[in-house]
């Protein structure tokens, strides 16, 4: 028996919007500690990890660990039927092959039930080791989204370089090149406008902007984004979900080769 009641239903909607473009089908794993998901995109270049801790739910009951395979597009369709202010309750019986989403309007005068079929998905759960990152950049998520969007109109890849100067996003395309440098800025009035750079050593990595752009779909979840870079690890783009957990995107860097320099 599984029953999760989330007062802030819009949060689940935003989560779905953030990951449904990257992943088609995924297993949602429910345990006593929380509701989580880990999935790779179909090309195995990016990985998304979601955690919604049980504390964040108004009511959380999970009798035994359960893994529910869902088509995220279908789930997103169902969740779109929920109002932004609705309270969403997820329910599943043990051994059942369906999950039920119940939407309650804030005034309790409308209650909708949506039952969705589950699917069997072969999940490849990856162990993600804790790692020390060479550089960690915290910046406003909207700013990051803007940068990715802008750069993707010029090139396909972004080089993220963190130096003591700041963090530089650069790209090149047929029409030219672009460089955006964000300096550390902690003196703003609002903490959510700060750009904080922690750097142990300089790092420069190349990523596909296509993925970065789909990561930024999670921007509504958090005002800040944390980008953790290490030269031999995938970048981590993390959006904290207030009081509940996080959504993290891992993206394998592009392999840099020497002839990059020789290319025209």
């Amino acid at each position: 028996m599984l029953e999760l009641r989330l007062v802030q239903g819009s949060l689940l909607k935003k989560v779905m919007e953030a990951i449904k473009d990257l992943v088609n089908d995924a297993n949602f794993d429910c345990s006593a500690t929380g509701f989580s998901l880990q999935a790779m995109d179909s090309s195995h270049v990016a990985l998304v990890a979601l955690l919604l801790r049980s504390e964040g739910f108004e009511h959380y009951r999970c009798d035994r660990n359960i893994s529910m395979g869902m088509n995220l597009n279908n789930m997103s369709k169902m969740l779109k039927c929920a109002g932004n202010d609705d309270i969403i309750t997820l329910k599943a019986d043990d051994g059942s092959d369906t999950v039920t989403f119940m939407f309650e309007s804030p005034t309790q005068d409308k209650i909708s039930d949506f039952e969705m079929k589950l699917m069997d998905i072969d999940s490849e759960h990856l162990g993600i080791p804790e790692a020390e990152y060479h550089a960690i950049v915290r910046m406003p998520s909207a700013e990051f989204a803007r940068i990715c969007k802008d750069l993707s109109s010029i090139g396909d890849t972004v080089v993220i370089s963190v130096t003591k100067e700041g963090v530089k996003f650069s790209t090149r395309g047929d029409i030219g090149t672009a460089n955006i440098v964000c300096r550390q800025n902690t003196t703003v009035d609002k903490p959510e406008e700060a750009t904080i750079i922690e750097m142990n050593e300089p790092v420069s990595l190349t990523f596909a902007l296509r993925y970065m752009n789909s990561f930024t779909k999670a921007t509504p979840l958090s005002s800040m984004v944390t980008i953790s870079l290490s030269s031999e690890l995938p970048v981590v783009v993390e959006y904290k979900i207030a009081e509940m957990g996080y959504i993290r995107f891992y993206l394998a860097p592009k392999i840099e080769e020497d002839e990059d320099e020789t290319k025209p």
């Binding site: 270049v45 080791p129 190349t206 596909a208 993206l251 394998a252 860097p253 392999i255």
Partner: peptide, 9 residues
């Protein structure tokens, strides 16, 4: 040149 996440995890 695109790395694979599976080569890291």
């Amino acid at each position: 040149k695109q790395g694979n996440i599976l080569s890291f995890f």
